[in-house]
Design a protein around this nucleic acid. Structure first.
Lengths: 174, 174
DNA sequence: ACAGAATACCTCGAACACGAGGTATAGGTC
DNA sequence: GACCTATACCTCGTGTTCGAGGTATTCTGT
């Protein structure tokens, strides 16, 4: 959430209402974002010195608080892009958010390092289901078409992403 | 979380520690599950009458509390499978959890209805980025290979899943 | 005989997100 | 002139999760 705000404000200054629409489209296409989450978060980030606000007479209605990223906020975004928490690597929703703003990290080597972390995660042996220490695969569920579908979708996704990641890595680090 | 516990216990009675491993593999492959989440949740579900526990001398170490789904718990699982919250349709992680246990809903028509909700969601026009009312596509970011990758991966995933869903729907409702 | 690791369960405070409520302004409709 | 809708911001109580801590038991290696 915080991260998405940093990213969108790095693209351009925005007022809260517009920010909410953009964050909702990116992460909340999946999980709509509540006012009660957005505005307290903005305040918290303001207190942390990551952004300042510029109150303008409303174009359409009530006065807008245009939010502008401060140098400290910019630095925080770059820090998070350079050394993301493990959750940003493993959770697809967060990873997508990270990808959306990775271009702000203006350093191909650092960008490649992040992509490599994701590639390592995806190529690790993993399964949704285990029988003790044995990972179960689609064939272990001959009578459950839904779990078989689960495997099919997950495999297709990760194959596509792995191919893209390898592609990008050779482009970024020739 | 609660839902995953209901699902795994419908598969078989389990003690908390084993439950934690299974839940972690399914949802936490992405987001590891904390003890501080699991055990209070179990207690809550026990108070709600969804499960009872059967304390056994530990096979390996400390005594195990084997958790057994009650008829009320079984009913709650079926209710959630039949009429899942919108979040379980739109959020991929939750959707995957739902799929993992959809076979417990022993009614092809109800199963098909759930799959159709997901299909409707996936085929709705959506985008990660907007310029006002115009959805942006990969070609709108010629200089941002990461956002282009985002689109590429998302498109591939949703294509695979849509194909699978259509497949399943014709099988379930001939 | 003892240390350490793995198993197994639990509590509590802090952080965060949600949802339901509220305020206010401007433009359009009846 | 009254009302509705969209815009724009805000608060507060509730619930869920995390993380850091704690307790106890059994097996393994030395």
């Amino acid at each position: 959430m915080e991260f998405a705000i940093l990213g969108f404000l790095a693209d351009a200054p925005l007022h809260g209402y517009e920010l909410r629409r953009r964050v909702a489209a990116l992460t909340g296409h999946v999980r709509p974002i509540a006012d009660g989450t957005l505005y307290p978060t903005i305040k918290r980030m303001e207190r942390a010195g990551w952004l300042r606000r510029d109150v303008q007479a409303g174009q359409v209605a009530a006065p807008r608080h245009v939010l502008i990223l401060s140098p400290a906020g910019q630095a925080e975004l770059l820090r998070q892009l350079r050394t993301p928490d493990e959750l940003f690597i493993s959770d697809e929703n967060r990873w997508f958010t990270l990808l959306a703003f990775l271009h702000h990290l203006d350093d191909p080597v650092a960008q490649a390092a992040v992509l490599r972390r994701r590639l390592d995660f995806l190529t690790q042996p993993a399964s949704f289901f285990w029988d003790g220490d044995r990972p179960l695969r689609a064939d272990d569920f001959p009578h459950d078409p839904f779990r078989r579908g689960l495997f099919r979708i997950a495999t297709a996704t990760s194959r596509t992403e792995i191919a893209w990641l390898r592609d990008m890595l050779t482009t970024l680090t020739p």
